[in-house]
Design a protein around this nucleic acid. Sequence first.
DNA 1: CATTTATAAATTTTT
DNA 2: TTTATAAATG
Length: 692
Amino acid sequence: MPSPWMEQLNESQREVVAHGQGPLIVVAGAGTGKTLTIAGRVAHLIEGGVAPERILLLTFTRRAAREMLSRAARLTQRPTPGNVWGGTFHAVANRLLRAYGRPLGIQPDFTVMDQADAADLMNLIREELGLSERERRFPRKDTLAAVYSRTVNAGRRLAEVVEADFPWCREEVDGIRSVFRRYARRKREHNVLDYDDLLLYWRALAAGQGLGSRLTRLFDHVLVDEYQDTNTLQADILSHLCGPTGNITVVGDDAQAIYSFRSATVRNILEFPQRYAGARIVRLEQNYRSTRPILAAANAVIELSPERHVKTLWSERPGDRSPLLMTCLDEADQSDAVCRRVLEHRERGVPLHGQAVLFRAAHHSDLLEIELARRNIPFVKYGGLKFLEAAHVKDAVALLRILENPFDAVSWFRTLQLIDGVGPAAARRLVEWLGVRRGDAPVPPGPSPVLRLLAPGTPGPPSPPDVRSQLEALGAALADCAGEGVPPAAQVERIRRFLAPVFERTYSHPAERLRDLEQLEQLASRSPSRARFITDLTLDPPSSTGDLAGPPSLDEDYLILSTIHSAKGLEWDVVHVIHAADGMIPSDMATGGPEEIEEERRLLYVALTRARNDLYVYFPLRYYRRPRGHEDAHSYAQLSRFLIPATVRSRFESRVAPLAEELIDEPLQDEDQLSSAGHRAVEMSLARLWEG
DNA sequence: CATTTATAAATTTTT
DNA sequence: TTTATAAATG
């Protein structure tokens, strides 16, 4: 009995929605109505009588989950689709482990560390083991965290991973192994899980170590979005959850696989039919998003990929405008060109939020941001948000974590060093003295022993009097926050008061840093509890500058800036892709092997396929080298190698910005001319700062 | 001996 | 702008 709303679907989409029992794989090209189709399937399942709380919808971001569930709600005309389990793998694991983790030795009040925290702990251990002071240099903390995460997520042997992905560390495998051993033990002692643990323990749970049988039967239907970007560990979890003939629906597109750095592997999608025998395969190939010329350009890019992408996207949307490849003189010229185009489109009726500027790395938009601010064009930036990485924010969060989990030694270690006169060595002694270690013993009831020790009036470890008084100030702040019924925002406020003098002493621009803590307070005011706040902060961190701006002013229009990674799954009427130069796309950091380069190609493909009506690709001819050289040292860029082949170029209309034209007409022979062109460009950009 | 200060170097993408 | 290493200071 098909519901009336199914009329709006095409045949393949309907097939997905109406699929009954058993495994299903949907190969959904870009813009083929994937969101609607998944939402439709959820709606259909619920209308067919499946209990919402027995449906699990795994998505790549929380935002995607919200979007799909609200669309499902609209389709079913019910207020909400009940309690469908929706979210990222990590968020769902978090919920499950708090409820069912005990048999695995997990205390339900565990805290979650992000990758930066993990790196800090690795660093601590690295020093403890004396690996940092040897004649040969040992991998640094971020490298260690990356190696660990890759090994765990890919389920490969350490030596193998190091050899393949970190060959320069190959001599240090033994040391790395010893760090990892202690790292794992330490996390357990401190009742802390990292991102990878969330998945590892979920797998253990699903595999039946604990109460697997109960958990396997927790869901009648599992749906997974962006399956091409899942890793081996995640695929394992799914297969434990569903069994080889279970009701699992995965949706993905191998042409859009862009997360191999997180150990994602396209093999998951390619081998799905083997893993789930008898799986039905449905392809969605009609693109509803882009005009034909745009799709033709995107197809031309991906066709050159040596890997097989067995589908051809087609579109019925006519369009008379080819995508434009805009050659600019330099970054400043590029920023100028983008601003002008953006405003042009706004004049013609496309609001700013209907347009996006996409780029490979977060800092690629730096210059553009300055120019936008100068022209009073509001914007919101997605991706690469360093808010939580900033030292001062981490300071505040560390205090919150201590309150939540007094055994979180990493947070203690960080916090204690805020005190004037306490460095790594003293902090370590203090942590020891405080007895920050849980082992397997349950937490004693009542106020934490740690807090009691810090409360004013209690004898402390031998230390200079000024350190004592600062410790007492810290204790007082913690005690105030730990009081009954203090809302999270008030706790952040109290922490801010404690940190104010610390920042004055430590940082050169304390006022700005304190302002960030006000934003943190804003954020906290939306959370019902401290525990929830901390967890949300690590599992669903603010993803855009807009998230931080407090209550959204809906009438305000703003341009979207986004990394290509963060733009996944989104679409805009007008898309501007900047920095289409070799070294940017593909990134210089990713030219190690053919596989990495292919991923960069897919990245460009993802960027191009975000556009509905108009697509612009910008290429600056010249880059000025950054800080040191005081004279205008510059280098010439090559167009991205993915755009050079004739089959691709012919899909674009090429245009050269006036400033760049001169440069191309009089190429390279005359140094004077070059530098005069360079000076002219600088003068132009300076002139723009004072005039107009 | 531990901490602070100075100096140099590096800097993708994200749950 | 942050982070590792070296030298200087308490």
